[in-house]
């Protein structure tokens, strides 16, 4: 009986660990992030009409997305296997990685709080936000086939 309980507890532990796959979780967040930035960029480039309320909603969604980014939970030690493009540099320099993400969050918060009133104001904010993407991907992501 004891053995069985032990086996079950091991099994449930394994299952719960597998269902909370940090690789999938972080990819989900990045995909959502790209989608929201894409919406904002289309407006900033004039491909879509500027609608202050819509922009406000998108910026707030971007902030919620940024706040979901918990480096410790999403990038636990050893989550380098599998279908990931995360660079080992994340774990070599976790403090630097977190600082990069913190700066991004601060820029998104500032943009949401600023509530851009026209295309030019939005363009400036998108520029600031967007520069964070390449800064982080330059060091902390590896392109894979």
């Amino acid at each position: 009986m004891r053995k069985l309980i032990f086996a079950i507890s091991i099994l449930t532990f394994a299952v719960s660990a597998a269902s909370a796959d940090p690789v999938l979780d972080r990819q989900q967040i990045m995909k959502e992030r790209g989608k929201i930035v894409g919406e904002l960029a289309k407006v900033a480039k004039g491909e879509q009409a500027f609608d202050a309320a819509q922009v406000d909603t998108a910026l707030k969604a971007l902030q919620v997305n940024a706040e979901k980014f918990d480096a410790d939970a999403l990038f636990p030690a050893g989550s380098t296997d599998g279908d990931t493009t995360a660079s080992p540099k994340i774990w070599e320099d976790m403090a630097g990685f977190k600082a990069t993400e913190d700066k991004y969050l601060a820029d998104v918060k500032a943009a949401a709080a600023a509530a851009p009133a026209d295309v030019d104001a939005l363009k400036a904010q998108v520029g600031v936000i967007g520069s964070n993407c390449s800064t982080c991907h330059q060091t902390f992501r590896i392109k894979k086939g």
């Binding site: 894409g38 993407c133 800064t135 991907h137 330059q138 590896i142 392109k143």
Partner: peptide, 9 residues
């Protein structure tokens, strides 16, 4: 809306 990365930055 993925971004440039690595040496391409």
């Amino acid at each position: 809306f993925d971004s440039v990365g690595g040496a391409m930055v």
